[in-house]
């Protein structure tokens, strides 16, 4: 989880990822940032994130992203 926070904070230092729970719904992360983030997450955690998983529920918070990463790593 700490590694995820590091990635997120490096990418968007002005966002408090410990608090935000509506990153997509409140448009804090736009589509292009999401693309960059996915690429970083795939490299860092050795997972493949399919397009169908790119839904607000999976990216609205750091916790949701972490759950997604763990689920995809288990598959």
């Amino acid at each position: 989880m700490e590694e995820l926070y590091e990635i997120l904070e490096e990418m968007q230092p002005e966002i408090d990822f410990h608090k935000e729970t509506a990153l997509i719904d409140d448009h804090l992360l736009d589509s292009l940032t999401v693309l960059s983030l996915i690429s970083e997450l795939e490299d860092a955690f050795d997972i493949t994130i399919p397009a169908v998983e790119i839904i607000p529920q999976n990216f609205n918070s750091a916790e949701a992203m972490w759950e997604l990463i763990q689920r995809l790593a288990d598959e």
Partner: peptide, 25 residues
Amino acid sequence: PISMSKPMKRLTSRARKRFGNHYGP
């Protein structure tokens, strides 16, 4: 679906390494 297709993902990954997180994607 377009930007997450395999060739596009490869392009994003390479471009990120070269141009950084903002310009890469």
